[in-house]
Amino acid sequence: MENAHAYGLLAEFDTPADAMHAAEKVRDAGFTRWDVHTPFPVHGMDEAMGLKNSKVGWFSFCGGATGFTAGYTMIWFMNSFNYPIVVGGKPLMSPMFPFPVVYEMTILLSAFGAIFGMLFLNKLPKLHHPLLKNRRFKAATDDKFYVIIETSDPRYVEEETRELLESAGCKHMEMVGE
């Protein structure tokens, strides 16, 4: 069987509007393993694809909270516990003077949380992706819009899926191998 090694069905569209309508159809048909590739961000695509708000925020929040606590703990440990040192006649520990450091730590670790959380959720880095072999797919960074439905999707039945994408106005379709 040829399809045993197929990654998915790639459908090409000429305009963002066509791709968006196709995405709505695919979403409504209940597919779960699929994606849309466009040369630039298309407003409203998240909704058309039925994507919920990203979970990256939780990673940055946890990172930020860790940074905040770690910043205060670090300064307290260094300046008033492990090696108490009086600077400028100020108290050994106060919420005031460490704050710039605490604030920077909060930002640094929440940025780390955002970056690494994003990489983790996207399963990146990835050494290879089947779409990268496809010659036609290069246009995804130029002027074409693609919807790809993976063959591993439980809803995937080749004939029906082809019909669905054709009815959405797809001009060109091809199977992408693993």
Binding site: G88, G89, K90, M96, F97
Partner: peptide
């Protein structure tokens, strides 16, 4: 506040 606190 911080500048005033620090400069004292």
């Amino acid at each position: 506040y911080f500048l005033i606190w620090n400069a004292a």
